[in-house]
């Protein structure tokens, strides 16, 4: 029991004293999760919106593929990305292995289907009366599209929060592609895995608390936004 209590105190100590390796892991986590989220949102949002908004041939099949991608195991993404960005791989010359950029690629692949699928479902769930209402108020096709997009903003926020939850807690990709390099690609999750492996529970708990705190802040600011 002692080491759990000890973990809480150690957490405060590490953070207040500005422990270099702890803060670098926190910063690495923030960087990779924000960047992967940004890229997957910028790409996934329009894709999800179009899939949900328009009717086209093969839509059902596309949704099935998307839902399958949702369940993609992170170690498999890690493996594939590793194979591509290793010096031997087709993208080897960019030297992305063991970098934060490499992790961002993996996490983006992880987050993209989440953003796309949830956005598509949200858009599909738009009240059919909305479109009718907009037409009856005189809206043209362009206005209808932009207004629909704005109407589902909370659903889109949900998609982004979900994606954030996946990327910030991910460990397989960060470990395989990042290589858990101290001060560089060690993220909170890979650090926790390492500390647990080494039997250093206190440090692991400290980092876990930071992760929970970040998640808490993100969700808090979202619920605040939603209330506006």
């Amino acid at each position: 029991m002692d080491f759990i209590v000890e973990g809480f105190f150690k957490a405060l100590e590490l953070l207040i004293n500005g422990d270099g390796s702890t803060w670098s892991a926190v910063l690495a986590t923030l960087k990779v999760s924000v960047w992967s989220l940004l890229i997957s949102t910028v790409t996934g949002l329009p894709c999800g919106f179009m899939i949900g908004y328009f009717d086209f041939k093969g839509k059902k099949q596309l949704r099935t593929v998307l839902d399958t991608l949702l369940a993609l195991p992170t170690v498999f993404i890690g493996l594939v990305v590793y194979a591509f960005i290793s010096r031997q791989g087709p993208l080897g010359e960019f030297g992305l292995l063991f970098t934060l950029s490499g992790i961002v690629i993996g996490l983006t692949i992880l987050a993209f289907p989440v953003v796309t699928a949830i956005t598509a479902s949200t858009v599909e769930g738009i009240d059919p009366d909305l479109k009718l209402t907009l037409i009856s108020l005189g809206a043209g096709k362009r206005h209808i599209l932009t207004t629909c997009l704005w109407e589902v903003r909370y659903g889109i926020l949900t998609a982004i929060v979900n994606a954030y939850g996946r990327v910030s807690t991910e460990v397989g990709i960060a470990m395989m592609i990042g290589g858990n390099i101290k001060y560089h690609t060690r993220t909170i999750t890979t650090a926790i895995a390492l500390e647990t492996n080494k039997g250093m529970f206190a440090d692991g708990i400290a980092l876990g608390l930071v992760l929970i705190t970040i998640a808490f802040i993100v969700n808090l600011s979202l619920s605040f936004l939603r209330k506006q």
Binding site: L130, T133, S136, G138, G140, T147, E151, Y154
Partner: peptide, 22 residues
């Protein structure tokens, strides 16, 4: 026919369950 701006802006419908924008 539908979507012609000449009528779209002159005719308006209040649906049974009117949708209020968020």
């Amino acid at each position: 026919s539908g979507f012609s701006p000449t009528v779209r802006l002159k005719v308006t419908l209040l649906t049974q369950n009117p949708y209020l924008l968020k």
